[in-house]
Amino acid sequence: MGTILELRDVKRYFGIRSGGWVGGGVEKPLKAVDGASFSIASGSSFGVAGESGSGKSTMGKLILRLDRPTGGAIEFEGRDIGKLDAQGDAWYRTRVQAVFQDASGSLDPRMRISAIVAEPLEIHARTGPNRLTKIEIREKVEDMLAQVALPERVMHDFPHELSGGQKQRVAIARAMILEPTMLVLDEPVSALDVSIRAQVLNLLSDFQDRYGLTYLMISHDLATLGHVSSQLAVMYLGRIVEIGDTEEIYERPLHPYTKALFRAMPLPDPDRVKSAPSLRGEIGSALDLPKGCRFCPRCDEAMPVCSAVDPELVDVGAGRQVACHLIGGPQLTKATHQRGSNE
């Protein structure tokens, strides 16, 4: 399996003016994504976890080319997507598609379901050598709706006539109609009820098996990510703090933030004893980053060095990288922390 997507030191800073009147003030950089590097293997599922404000959705937008990075490069199938011309842009949009959390917000309320699902084809396949006729488009739409298990009669419905789960199926059908190679899924099941959530996750897993799709799933829900993804990146204030094999991270989280996320995750197990509170305080501001490690103000295991030096992501073996002074870094490794004192 080759690499389908690679991020190299991707940054997205927003200039935020503060203080002063209109046009005045000092511009400060808001570091939404601050140096993200990883690669995704073709046909695999990559999960991105983090709280609101961690920069995970901004990263999704950068990958979708809905926003441009201010630094670094994103390569898809060997091409730098920052340097695509109009033709390249059209190509990219047929290869990479998106499904977002709120299906009601991403479906035009005045379009019928058949038109919504057909629109990508209308844009990309009405011209050029592979042009499709109206009848062919219709057949494809019918076939796709069948694949996402929607009854044929919904074709003529408007989005408001469908339930939340059905709307998300329509969004998936629209994303899949161009036969992309990769889907960016930003909280695709967070708004759905438990019983519907399982249906949609199973549907996504069927598509992956059938077409060898690559998924990038962004979510705050570690249980869902743990089910879907084989690789996982945990983000905090614009930085990836831990990245590696999902199962291994679940088994032995190394970064104190990852550990805290697992402790905070509610599990339907009445016998689980909750020890210490998962985390004090709240996620900081990306405008006013703490000196040193960004997680330091909330970290129980912080050392003096943590508030002075920003830790780099270091390789800890088995394909795992962690950005924490407790694990490698300037201080010597404390063996006790390697054993994962979680649970």
Partner: peptide, 8 residues
């Protein structure tokens, strides 16, 4: 129907 964390 709940995904069990850690067991894929």
């Amino acid at each position: 129907a709940l995904p069990v964390p850690g067991t894929r």
